[in-house]
Amino acid sequence: MEIKITKKNSAFILIQILTLSYLTIFFTGCMNDVNEPQSVNKNTVMLLDSENKTLVQVEYADFDSINSKSDNEIIRYIIELLAKGVEGSKYESTIDDNIKLKQVSVLNSRVILDFTNEYYNQSAINELYMRSSIVRSITELDRFSSVEFYVESNPLKTGDSKMIGKLRKQDVLLTYDEATNRNEQQILTIYFPNEDNLLLVPTIVEVTASPNRKIEDIVIDQLISADKKLLPLGVELLNVYTHEGICFIDFSSEFKTSPLPQDISERIAIYAIVNSLVELTHISKVQILVNGKIEFVFQKNLSLNRIFIKNYSLIEF
């Protein structure tokens, strides 16, 4: 007697390994035609790419001849290139035919251009293209640091009758990437405690920071990360913004719970913050929040339930 068992070979089940993948966030693209300026003294001018409506670097042929020419000749040559464009290509001129360059003068490295009155007849966008392409094309050469615009011997004014003044290379930005991925040097006045921690000493600090960082943020960061600690340890800045002259600083809860460094009084800590911030022209008063809330007591005695103004009595001169 035999019982036959027919075995069906069971199918192997493959364990599917699914990789976690981030969703790539949106791209808008199309900003790549502009070559980042790689080195100084490049023989390029900024012309308008008619397809992408952006200013792009276009090489021009006779670089060698540039060195032998005078500053005036070089500038006139560049302006001529900008007015002409590259025929038969997508690179268009940025200067209207009607606008004539009356005079060019170079003072040290400052370039002063005087245009005919037709400058004001062009559209605002064309004006933006023209001005930007001139500034970037000229300052692309190392020997020129800035460009000033004049129309019929008067300084150029934009529609809201504001003077433009001299424009350096960094004053004209052609892409958002260029505008974002740069560091700007800033000069701040920060109040640090003196040796015996009784008074505050105004100290000039030079900071290079991204233009996307709020200046208030940079100021607070200087105080939090100072070598000589003066704020409660471990405190973090949650948010900072200024509304109608009042700067609102939102600290993490450590501001209240974590102890102050030795010998630093509550007043010194608070007014180091307040005085440093009020140095900024757009700030006159300071409100301190902890986790977004108004606290009645800072650490022991000092009330945070008020708007602080600059304290002159604590400043050491």
């Binding site: 199309c30 900003m31 992408n52 409506k53 952006t54 200013l55 605002a124 966008i125 004006e127 933006l128 293209y129 001005r131 930007s132 500034v135 934009t158 529609g159 809201d160 504001k162 433009i164 003044g165 424009l167 960094q170 004053d171 004209v172 930005l173 052609l174 892409t175 958002y176 505008a179 700007e184 800033q186 233009p211 996307n212 960082r213 709020k214 200046i215 900024l280 022209t281 757009h282």
Partner: peptide
Amino acid sequence: NKHGIILFDSNHLDVGKSYATIQVVDGLQ
């Protein structure tokens, strides 16, 4: 402004500078 010049910057850094970016030009249109 309509000339691409920055009139106000909440970070107070770029006032007076010009943005000749494609988006600004697009915005001006």
